[in-house]
Computed example of a mutant assay.
Amino acid sequence: MPVAPEHALKPRKRPRQARSAATVEAIFEATIQVLLSDGLAGLTTTRVAARAGVSVGTMYQYFPHKDALLYAVLEDYLDDVVGALETASDRYRGLPLAEMSDGLVHSYLDAKMRHLPGAQVLYVVATELETTDLMGDICARCEAPIARMLATASDVRFDDLARVTDAFRAMLGGVVRAILENDVSPRALAMLRTELPVMCRAYLQASARPIEP
């Protein structure tokens, strides 16, 4: 199947009023539900419109075709994850490294698990669309609040903050994706909750230089 260029996946317009925003949110939720019930191959704009309780014409006001809809749903999900990191960055800034690392990891996991089981199907969606620009933008937006937070650690400093931030973000996202793509059993999710903070904290502590008293 040909992959549409990324510029062709942009929505026709953005909702500007509360009612329009609620309509788009209902369309997004319906898209996830159809993906979960019928799979990516079974998703059509007609099925999504029926599940959302809107006309196909209303959908086409925002999304010119199915791939544009899927792209928008993926972008909305990723925006929520970025928002969780930004909130955590502000909340944990200035604390000792171990506390800020654990806090940020748990905030990231909360954002990911809040969207289960939809997050699983969105990983599939991401592989079917041209998302190079989107993922590059999301990675940069994730790294910015992480770097801001790490720069304020009360007990350590980093000689190469950009490198550490890039590696930390890659480890965080890679481990979570590896688990969620394959296993969302209670056991696997509990393992993520306990072990991922340990992994991330250990990496940051090994990469940091203690502040001399």
Rank of each mutant, 00 (worst) to 15 (best):
L70S: 12
R169W: 11
V73N: 03
V125E: 08
R93V: 07
L109Y: 09
E143L: 05
G94V: 09
V124Y: 09
C139F: 12
R141D: 08
R141A: 12
D133R: 15
D110M: 02
L70C: 11
D79G: 00
L74R: 00
M113L: 15
A68C: 08
A88D: 06
Y77T: 13
A144Y: 06
Y92F: 15
Y77D: 13
D166M: 07
D137M: 10
T58Q: 13
A111P: 04
A72H: 02
T131I: 13
M171W: 13
L85H: 08
Q61S: 00
D102N: 15
Y108D: 07
A167W: 05
T87A: 14
A111K: 01
D110Q: 13
Y92N: 03
V164G: 10
K112R: 11
E128V: 08
A119V: 11
D155G: 03
R148H: 12
D90A: 14
L104A: 01
K66P: 01
V125T: 09
L161V: 07
G103K: 06
G94N: 09
M135F: 15
V125R: 04
S154A: 14
S154H: 02
M113W: 11
A126H: 10
L97P: 12
T132F: 04
A68S: 15
P96L: 03
S101M: 04
R93H: 11
A111F: 11
A140Y: 02
R93C: 10
E143W: 03
M113S: 08
V125A: 08
L129R: 07
G94C: 11
L78D: 02
A126S: 15
P64E: 12
L161G: 12
Q120L: 09
K112Y: 14
L78V: 00
D110S: 08
L129E: 05
M113N: 13
Y108T: 10
K112N: 11
R114E: 14
A170R: 15
R163D: 14
D67L: 06
G103M: 09
S89Y: 01
P64S: 14
L116H: 05
V73M: 06
S101P: 06
L129F: 06
A151C: 04
D155T: 02
Q61W: 00
R114A: 15
P96K: 05
D133E: 15
A144N: 10
Y123G: 03
A144I: 01
Y108M: 07
Y71N: 01
R91I: 04
A147T: 13
L109K: 01
V156F: 06
Y62H: 04
V82R: 00
Y71L: 02
D80R: 14
L85K: 00
D166W: 10
Y62V: 02
F168Y: 15
A119C: 02
L69G: 12
G83Q: 02
D160P: 10
E99A: 15
L109W: 11
T131M: 05
K66H: 03
T131K: 01
R157W: 10
Q120D: 02
Y92R: 01
L69M: 10
R148L: 09
P117L: 05
F63A: 05
R169F: 12
Y108R: 00
A68F: 09
L104W: 01
Y123L: 14
D137E: 15
A140W: 01
D67T: 06
F63P: 03
E86G: 03
A151N: 08
M59E: 03
